[in-house]
Computed example of a mutant assay.
Amino acid sequence: MKFKFLLFLVPLTVLLSCQDEDAIREKERLKNVEKSEVLFEKINKSWNFNAFSGSEEVRSILKNWNEWNDFSRELSQKPKSSINAFRKKAIALSKKAEALNNNVPEKFNNPQVKSRISIIVSQVHSLDLYINLDKIPAEKVVGIIPNINKGMQSLEAQFQEILRKEKIPLEQGESDMIKMLDTSRAIPSSKPILPVN
Rank of each mutant, 00 (worst) to 15 (best):
N132T: 13
S118L: 10
F86L: 11
I187C: 13
P111V: 06
R29C: 11
E139P: 10
F40H: 05
L39C: 08
N84M: 04
A90I: 02
D70S: 09
K27W: 01
D70F: 12
E28L: 05
K96S: 14
V104Q: 01
S17H: 01
I120T: 09
N132A: 02
G143I: 05
F8Q: 12
L9E: 04
S184E: 06
I119G: 00
K27I: 04
E171A: 11
Q19M: 14
N147G: 09
N197W: 07
K191Q: 11
S190R: 05
I144M: 11
I43M: 09
M177R: 14
G151E: 01
E98F: 14
I136C: 05
F71E: 01
D176T: 12
N48A: 13
P195M: 11
F159K: 01
L30E: 06
V38T: 02
M180S: 11
K89A: 15
S184D: 10
A92W: 03
F52E: 04
L133S: 09
Q158N: 10
L6F: 08
M152W: 07
Q19D: 11
I61L: 12
E139Q: 12
L163M: 08
S122F: 02
L181C: 14
V10W: 06
A85Q: 04
W68P: 10
A85D: 02
I178M: 08
L30F: 08
S53T: 08
E161A: 15
P195G: 04
P11K: 11
S190I: 03
K45P: 00
S118R: 12
S60L: 05
N132L: 03
A157C: 03
A157M: 15
K2T: 03
A157P: 09
V104I: 15
G173R: 10
Q123R: 08
V104F: 00
F159Q: 00
G143R: 02
D22L: 14
S126E: 06
E106D: 10
K88M: 07
F71Y: 15
A23K: 13
N102G: 07
G173S: 03
I145V: 14
L127C: 03
N66Q: 09
V142K: 02
E156Q: 14
F108V: 00
T13F: 14
E161V: 11
V121D: 11
L93C: 06
F52P: 06
Q112V: 00
I187H: 07
R116K: 15
I162K: 01
L194P: 01
C18T: 15
P192W: 13
L170V: 11
